[in-house]
Design a protein around this nucleic acid. Structure first.
Lengths: 247, 247
DNA sequence: CGAGGTCTTGAAGACGATCAACAAACGTGG
DNA sequence: CCACGTTTGTTGATCGTCTTCAAGACCTCG
């Protein structure tokens, strides 16, 4: 279940943006040339650390990454899971200081896009600017949906919701196979994402399994009963804003 | 504890943006002229409803408003509380379809900024565009901090954190008086915000009171022990990105 | 002055955390 | 290729935070 991200480092981002609104050849060209440098990170390495003021933004080309905040007592909360094509810290372009870290959940390949180039895009390419802005707005929309889950859904609903969401997001970038996808997160990481203990994540996963909603072997999750999972999750994909429309 | 928002409808937004980066006279002029129409809403009215596709964005001029999502079973989750100067659905400019509603928590006065004008700004005023983008990024940053609270903080910590956050945000727009501010939310609304039951909100508020951290008479909250509250909240204002820097 | 909304209090129960221990899987070096 | 150590997954028991249900006090505003 490996996919070709294409030779062009910007390919996955272009694909993701074009899902929402077609790009002109010129815009594609600008994006394709925006990656100044490719870097690789190993598991548990920070792509960017809290407190940094990077002068480039990080485009995730391959692998899974997570935004997280550490608490005073050593626990942590993952606030977002990122997949290839996600511009994981585009916000540092304007926010400057990272108020959270971004860690590699699997080995990651990233493209560094200098803020200078992003600034140039905002000066010269308004439509492309709107699409990059859009991509941060979708991040925000996902945050809001997570907030609903954390505040009002049970552990079971939250887990089911996350699986539905990741399935769709991975489908967009061609990283699903039928009803299956690779989910290389440990149960501890899922707990940090959903605000649950590792033990409880384990029990919830088993509940989803015995309910016949999913199978989960190794790192491969298969959705066995889509409708059932959607119902448990109370899942509505509207928050992903997958529609293709002029922006 | 009333404040003058100035005669200019864009004044509170200009003030909020200038907090982060100075605006040119031309930019201020553009913003001041961006409000096409002023509207008033009563308590519990939707400024914007889920499912709508507004052709303008809503700038909150006066009053408190909340973004919320309703669940299938009738409960709701408030994902953000908004105060004057907040561009409450700037994201609808690019997201188009509202995937959540925005409700007036108090009587509200709003300015409607046509998407057409926002588009014009993105075409002609790159720096102003970046500042508007920034304002949505700060929304996202606040969402992430809320996520940390919902996932990992106790009810007491969450409540304390919310009070610290609102104090600072209200201070920026001149709506605090010493250590006091008006907080016109019911305990039920606070519960919907923090993911708690009304009953528990009540108990937590009393705990903060008896600990001598705050007083809360009528709708006026006074922080009696700033350090203590910050400690209980584990509060770090970095996520508000209040620094003034070139963007 | 009355009525509905808001706040407050008590009691019982549920969901998920914590603690502890063990099993299984993985990866690394010999 | 196997041995071993470490990480990840699994299970059980107990505990605590927060929910739910219920009822009464307060208060605000027509």
């Amino acid at each position: 279940m490996q996919m070709e991200t294409g030779n062009n480092p910007g390919a996955s981002l272009i694909r993701k943006l074009e899902q929402r609104d077609p790009l002109s050849d010129e815009e594609k060209h600008v994006l394709a040339n925006s990656v100044a440098r490719i870097r690789e990170f190993g598991v548990d390495e920070d792509l960017v650390s809290e407190g940094e003021r990077p002068n480039y933004s990080t485009l995730l080309l391959e692998g899974f990454a997570a935004r997280y905040k550490d608490l005073a007592d050593g626990r942590r909360q993952i606030t977002a899971i990122h997949v290839p094509g996600d511009f994981v810290d585009l916000h540092s372009f304007l926010l400057h200081r990272m108020d959270h870290g971004i860690v590699a959940l699997t080995p990651c390949r990233i493209g560094a896009v200098p803020h200078e180039i992003l600034r140039h895009i905002t000066e010269r390419h308004p439509h492309l600017t709107r699409l990059l802005w859009l991509s941060t707005l979708i991040d925000g929309s996902i945050h809001r949906e997570s907030l609903v889950g954390m505040g009002r859904r049970t552990a079971l609903g939250r887990m089911a919701h996350l699986l539905c969401e990741l399935f769709l997001r991975l489908q967009v970038i061609g990283q699903t196979e039928g009803d299956s996808f690779r989910l290389p997160l440990t149960q501890a990481e899922l707990g940090d994402t959903l605000g649950l203990s590792t033990v409880h994540v384990n029990r919830i996963v088993q509940e989803l399994r015995t309910a016949g909603l999913i199978t989960w072997r190794g790192q491969v999750v298969t959705i066995e009963n889509r409708e059932g999972l959607v119902e448990v999750a109370d899942f509505d994909p509207a928050f992903l804003h997958l529609e293709n429309e002029p922006r």
